[in-house]
């Protein structure tokens, strides 16, 4: 759905990193390097951004 605001496991706030992560990986940068730059060092936080799929883009136009 929407980008996660916090890590499900440890609770670290990471919503502010999503757009930068998306922009840089779309340009072809290595996700590993981007995550390191953002300072996400635990694997629970890293998977939050790595495995996220912005499904809201597909459904936001349909009525509730």
């Amino acid at each position: 759905m929407h980008a996660p605001i916090r890590c499900f496991t440890c609770g670290k706030a990471l919503g502010q990193y999503w757009e930068e992560f998306k922009k840089r990986t779309d340009k072809g940068e290595d996700p590993e390097k981007v995550l390191d730059d953002l300072g996400l060092d635990r694997y629970c936080c890293r998977r939050m951004l790595l495995s996220h799929e912005e499904v809201i883009e597909d459904i936001k136009g349909y009525p509730r």
Partner: peptide
């Protein structure tokens, strides 16, 4: 975004303005 949140006390504000909260059509 979290930067669109208006607060009564300027000291209480989101840690970052870049957190996406909702996407609107």
């Amino acid at each position: 975004y979290s930067s669109d949140i208006k607060t009564s006390d300027p000291k209480i504000k989101p840690i970052s303005g870049k957190i996406p909260i909702m996407k609107l059509m």
